[in-house]
């Protein structure tokens, strides 16, 4: 089986400081990988390098494109990478306002992604948008409201609808449940898990919440100071951590 994403020796430096370095892994179709680590560990830098938002200083990020197989997205031309960003990839930001157009209606936010890949028929765009709002549990009668009138949890669900409407194969998520109430988090996790299974998505989720990765991720990568210190099956890394830092991380979680 060809990996969907093949990451080899990726590094990003901010001057003399290390953003992330020497990161390599393969992600296969249908796999969900979590990246955990404390603030400043380089997990968001890595995610942005993988998603083409930052240009890594070294290494290759190969994606299994529909037409040409594995291609290095780092050396790819900008228009091609942008096309991937609109079709095969999706990026869910921690703050929904970074991923939404706040002055456009909810329906417009979802429809815009469809139009970016060539949909033109107003009626069918609106139908698809309505269908997706339903899937992320937003009432159809809110379709013409702007996201500014939505709660934080609703904005996050709208962002997910906007991202998944074009049927991507790989979703990057940066703290998707950060800043939400625990009850809203649970709902979002349930939704994400359902979508991942139904659509056969692969996902890379950056978070500092170990409970989130336990429920969502198949595999886990632990980062510290820009380095990957441990990788493995999620439950194995959390229940039998090998590295000193991972042991500290796991034992620091407050029990409810």
């Amino acid at each position: 089986m060809t990996p969907l994403l093949q990451v080899e020796g990726v590094a990003k430096f901010y001057g003399a400081r290390v953003g992330c370095t020497d990161v390599s892994f393969d992600l296969y179709p249908g796999e969900v990988m979590g990246i955990v680590g404390e603030s400043g560990s380089g997990k968001s830098t890595l995610l942005n390098c993988l998603a083409g938002h930052l240009t890594p200083d070294a290494g290759a990020v190969r994606f299994d494109t529909k037409t040409d197989g594995l291609r290095d997205t780092v050396t790819m031309r900008e228009p091609e990478r942008r096309m991937l960003g609109r079709t095969d990839w999706a990026f869910v930001h921690q703050h929904a306002r970074d991923g939404l157009r706040m002055n456009v209606s909810a329906g417009g936010n979802v429809g815009e992604r469809l139009m970016a890949v060539g949909a033109r028929h107003y009626g069918s765009i609106r139908d698809t948008a309505t269908d997706w709002l339903g899937r992320v549990e937003i009432n159809a009668d809110r379709i013409d409201d702007r996201p500014t009138a939505f709660s934080g949890g609703m904005q996050q669900r709208l962002q997910i609808a906007r991202n998944l409407v074009t049927g991507p194969r790989l979703v990057f998520m940066d703290e998707p449940t950060g800043g939400l109430d625990v009850s809203v988090q649970a709902r979002l996790l349930d939704l994400l898990r359902g979508l991942v299974r139904e659509m056969g998505l692969s996902a890379i989720i950056v978070t500092h919440d170990l409970a989130v990765v336990r429920l969502l991720a198949d595999r886990l990568m632990v980062m510290k100071d820009g380095h990957v210190v441990e990788t493995g099956l999620t439950d194995q890394v959390l229940d039998d951590p090998q590295h000193a830092y991972t042991q500290l991380l796991v034992s620091s979680v407050l029990q409810v």
């Binding site: 493995g232 099956l233 439950d235 194995q236 229940d239 039998d240 090998q242």
Partner: peptide, 9 residues
């Protein structure tokens, strides 16, 4: 048991 399941390394 956990080693059989791959939960412990």
């Amino acid at each position: 048991m956990r080693m059989l399941y791959g939960n412990y390394l």
